[in-house]
Design a protein around this nucleic acid. Structure first.
Lengths: 223, 223
DNA sequence: GGCGTTAAGTTAACACCGTTACATTAACAC
DNA sequence: GTGTTAATGTAACGGTGTTAACTTAACGCC
């Protein structure tokens, strides 16, 4: 409670950020298993128990690491749309693509939030939606105002789009997308991240026009 | 390699299934952390090491437990559509709803596949898509033949629908959906599983008709 | 200069964990 | 009987997150 408290804290924070950075690297390289208190500590040059002076425990440490990831993701998504015209569907699509890119480039951050053993579900602010949700929502509302999206509850549309992209990413992170689409031959020349984005591109038509057949095209095939 | 091998094995399998059942319960109750070799063993009345005679290790045990979950999920989905007319969109929608129901009623099975630390992604056959993918694909193809779905690559449509539903479930398992839609007031009276399904119902319009505004409705609002 | 307090870190230990090595018991084949 | 194999047990290893108790250094204060 003394006056010099602020300055004193500021200096010591270096240790805290060093711990966070080490944790971040371990997580990105080897996943949650590789992020052990002892591994983090040895990388920083401390004993494992010293970490408990800065973080409540492993869960707290991981939370803080992941939080940092979200902050980056928000910036990532803003950057993706900044040069595209407001109200355009291109903006909405670019946002989806950015989400995919970020997720696949930061698998471990991403997995943790949706994979972690949480007894209670996490608050929305702790989730990639944090920045993402609000950015997307703004784009959707603008697109509605511009007459590019049918006028309905914007939150339903946002969740619709978010679910679509998030589902695609999550599925492709768990299965081998290449194998999954082997029979189809669609996007044959692509793989990994590009395949996911290629498939996302093919979703655009469905999102825009829906699954319903065009009017006046006759009743489909030979049924 | 002796002749009595089969009968002998059949009798002993009871131990194996007892282990599986104990593992299943522990997983469903307390997640992957609660499923420890020692906990399983004590529940069956064995020593932890005895499990290694029936399973290669924890990973193998978990895999087998999850596999059982998939089998159930497939049956669950077949049952959901059996009384609905083939080729109808109701079938497709019922499948989505069944997927949501199963996921939320079997969170731990579900989480594991998409959450587990897999260096290499799992094969499609190891994923809820296993049964699910093929069931959904059949329904989509039938709906195309019946003229209820625009004719395009069915695998793209299947993945589109699967992504949508899977994303919705995954997001709602990680965030608090109630909180997320607080401002909107949509589906205000529902919660938990019902809210997710309620929201899924609102997706149906968007899936059918797309986001594009109807022709001849004028250029949207006041933009 | 001595005192109390706090920050920052240590070592030792606890209770788990998955897994391995090795011993044991029982049943069966020859 | 003897050998073999299935089925289980005990003891132990190296790892985990975490706690308790201790040190060491720095600071404010009188």
């Amino acid at each position: 409670m003394t006056e010099s408290h602020i300055a004193e804290k500021t200096g010591s924070r270096e240790t805290e950020t060093a711990i966070l950075e080490a944790a971040r690297n371990l997580l990105a390289e080897g996943g949650l298993d590789a992020l052990s208190m002892r591994a983090v500590a040895s990388q920083v040059g401390l004993s494992a128990t010293a970490i408990y002076h800065w973080f409540e425990g492993k869960e707290d440490l991981v939370d803080r690491v992941v939080l940092h990831g979200f902050r980056r993701s928000e910036a990532y998504m803003w950057k993706a749309i900044e040069e595209l015209p407001a109200g355009s569907m291109d903006r909405v699509a670019a946002l989806g693509e950015a989400y995919i890119r970020f997720a696949l480039e930061n698998r471990e951050y991403f997995k943790i939030i949706f994979a972690i053993q949480t007894p209670a579900p996490r608050h929305i602010d702790d989730v990639p939606g944090q920045g993402g949700y609000r950015v997307l929502r703004q784009c959707v509302v603008e697109a509605m105002d511009a007459g590019n999206i049918r006028r309905t509850d914007p939150d339903v549309v946002v969740l619709f789009l978010w679910s679509l992209v998030h589902g695609l990413v999550t599925i492709f992170m768990a299965c081998d997308p290449k194998e999954m689409l082997a029979e189809t031959g669609c996007c044959d020349d692509l793989d990994g991240k590009d395949l996911t984005i290629g498939l996302f591109a093919r979703f655009r038509d469905l999102v825009r026009g829906g699954l319903e057949p065009e009017e006046g095209m006759g009743g489909g095939g030979d049924a």
